[in-house]
């Protein structure tokens, strides 16, 4: 797939729910070609930030820049060809097959005059291959395992052929094996040159699979950088009110948290 590197950043971004600011004056940049994990305690504004980056939430002030252009000025379809979002509550109607679902990812590239094309079919095929779902293409989604289903959803946004993918808690309802299944796919997509950002609530998992960590608390970024550099005992305490012992994964070097204890 041809994916041009592209950059997404927020500048002094403030997002509000009914005038209550949820994301406050926030600056963040997604490093191109890397996997960024946005972590933080519940209610810290991480999902809202992701929605703001995808223009699903219009800023109260500040900007989101895609390759230097404010996304507010981009037409919706143009944006959808450059940035794809997998929201958390994604749910498909009963009976929809994997290939049909992935076909929806082609919509930003279709129009009244340009309906379903051979190119669309080729891209869907590629997305099936990327997510290793060829054998399941004609199966209805509800007959799949949780991990397979989530891969199908990700394949749908792969078919959007964007260089930027935003995932909101892609593994929240999955068991460990299925989580790894999804993260391996995410890794693979980044290795092909795409820029990914995902909201995660599991810090150790984020440390293991992300190149870049954005830690948020109360609508602000408290730390950003490679997990090995930014995750410290103090950060964990600040984010979650939890004391821990920090070790390093002998294989990957990623930080591991042990001896967790809640601080009163």
């Amino acid at each position: 797939m041809n994916v041009a590197a592209c950059s997404l950043e927020a500048r002094e971004l403030t997002l509000a729910h009914d005038r209550t600011p949820v994301v406050v004056d926030l600056d963040v940049r997604l490093p191109a070609g890397q996997v960024t994990a946005i972590v933080g305690p519940n209610g810290c504004g991480k999902s809202t930030l992701l929605a703001g980056l995808a223009r699903l939430h219009s800023p109260q002030s500040g900007h989101v820049l895609l390759d230097g252009n404010d996304i507010v000025r981009l037409p919706a379809r143009e944006l959808a060809r450059r940035l794809a979002l997998l929201p958390q509550e994604a749910r498909a109607p009963e009976g929809l097959t994997v290939a049909e679902l992935i076909g929806f990812g082609r919509q930003p590239h279709q129009s009244w005059l340009r309906q379903w094309s051979a190119e669309d079919r080729r891209v869907v095929d590629e997305a099936l291959a990327a997510a290793d779902l060829h054998a399941l293409a004609d199966r209805p989604l509800e007959s799949l395992s949780g991990g397979q289903r989530q891969r199908a959803w990700i394949a749908m946004i792969i078919a959007q052929q964007t260089s930027l993918l935003l995932l909101d808690e892609p593994t929240s309802a999955l068991d460990l094996g299925h989580q790894l299944e999804v993260f391996e796919l995410v890794r693979h997509l980044a290795d092909e040159g795409r820029t990914l950002a995902m909201v995660l609530h599991d810090l150790p998992i984020a440390c293991r699979y992300a190149d870049h960590l954005v830690a948020m608390r109360e609508g602000r970024v408290v730390a950003a950088g490679p997990p090995g550099e930014v995750v410290t005992r103090e950060l964990v305490r600040e984010l979650y009110g939890v004391d821990c012992v920090l070790m390093h994964d002998p294989q990957s070097g990623a930080p591991i948290l042990t001896g967790l204890r809640r601080i009163r």
Partner: peptide, 20 residues
């Protein structure tokens, strides 16, 4: 018809696909 079909996948997803 096309955006309506996408709406079956959820409001946010349809918006993410470039619909209103």
């Amino acid at each position: 018809a096309r955006p309506l079909a996408a709406l079956a996948l959820g409001e946010r997803l349809a918006a993410g696909l470039g619909h209103h």
